[in-house]
Design a binder for these strands. Structure first.
Lengths: 219, 219
DNA sequence: ACCCGGTCGTATCCGGCGATACAGCGCGCC
DNA sequence: GGCGCGCTGTATCGCCGGATACGACCGGGT
């Protein structure tokens, strides 16, 4: 029941390799637990490639509630959204574990891209992936059915982190019901209720703290 | 009460100019009303810059319901999401008016970007903007309050299309309640109910078919 | 004039989610 | 060991949005 490794996002190894190759050419940074990489509403032009640690990216709503967008683990990129369009950041990123990251500055990215034209393509592929994930989350959030919302999250985790298991795909990321609630826009109670129902239906199993998504449910 | 000009998205002029400058270097295409630019689940590598016309981008859910992502009007880009990551398209784009577009192929984009390094940067700025819009929609979709969901849409339209008006910002895009419902994940009935409430509260006015968003509501 | 399709307004009913409260439980910490 | 904290499982209740149905209105077409 390791509490660690709760990441909910990562990129393909090829893209990660491309970004890692800039080690030495960009600033290396370390963030302590609880330190912010960037904060909602501020304007700056940096984005971060996470080498190790864990960063929670979330939006704080007017009413004070927090919407968790992702937990970015090793080999994830964050902050590139507001780094490029020059508008205030729409999310906040805080390290929930000690974190090592590479800091790219879009003010200097042009010269980096000139030196390595593949960087631009890699970035585009990556932002495209993020766009896809966001659109799919949207698709399921318009539904008010919590089962739908939660299954979408589990399927995504299954694709990104799960390993094969006799009864399905074992998701090696552990999220509390409260975290799931905050990512799916439901209440904590509804998450347990819904996951209970899913278990009864045989779409889901719990084994020593890990969630197993039945194959036939796995899209 | 023109029925036309129902676009819900456009980009800044500077970015549009950059893409228009490729006229002649990429394929020009025309789509008849009802024709599809691309279809959900298929794989291909093209994306489109819309010169004139109107294209509806939507996701069809398993249960048959349709989630409208955007109505792309002149100076909008669509399809770049699945063009770059090589995965099946997550949305369908169909021309709802006769449409002229420039067709970019990511298979050839590398040479285009080499010829004009600014293209990559323009694309990144654009996908970043889309990421922002999607994230903000997400922020409000997690809320189950229809008022919240609908105001988010209206604010966005206000920023993109509205003109100043004595009582607020006049949104020159006309959407039916049904379209709003499909974009906000509520029912048609709830949209009229909610907009009625907003009108009573003085946050909203209707004038010859156009919606006016009161200034103090305009974020 | 007539019909008709699309849109907006409104009523009723039902189901299910959110809020709240509380009980069991595992784990870590003093 | 004992205590406390965070997580999970349930119960109750109130409220509100979805489904459905129906009527009014408007514009276009024949």
């Amino acid at each position: 029941m390791t509490k660690k490794a709760t990441a909910t996002w990562r990129m393909t190894d090829a893209l990660a390799a491309k970004l890692v190759s800039f080690e030495g050419k960009v600033r290396a940074r370390r963030f302590a637990e609880g330190e912010q990489l960037y904060r909602q509403d501020e304007i700056n032009t940096c984005f971060y490639f996470i080498k190790s640690g864990l960063v929670q990216v979330s939006i704080f709503r007017r009413d004070g509630t927090e919407v968790v967008l992702e937990n970015m683990g090793p080999n994830a990129l964050c902050g590139e959204g507001s780094a490029f369009d020059g508008l205030p950041r729409f999310s906040t990123a805080v390290a929930v574990e000690p974190t090592e990251a590479l800091e790219f500055d879009t003010a200097r990215i042009e010269s980096l891209m000139r030196a390595d034209p593949e960087l631009a393509l890699a970035m585009l592929r990556l932002t495209s992936l993020k766009q896809r994930i966001l659109a799919l989350r949207l698709e399921h959030l318009v539904s008010n059915d919590p089962e739908d919302r939660i299954l979408e999250l589990l399927r995504r985790l299954s694709q990104m982190f799960a390993i094969d298991h006799e009864r399905g795909r074992k998701i090696i990321t552990h999220l509390t019901h409260e975290q799931i609630a905050s990512m799916t826009g439901t209440s904590r109670v509804t998450v347990t209720r819904t996951m209970g129902r899913l278990r009864e239906k045989g779409m889901l199993f719990i084994e020593d703290g890990f969630t197993i998504l039945a194959n036939e449910v796995d899209s």
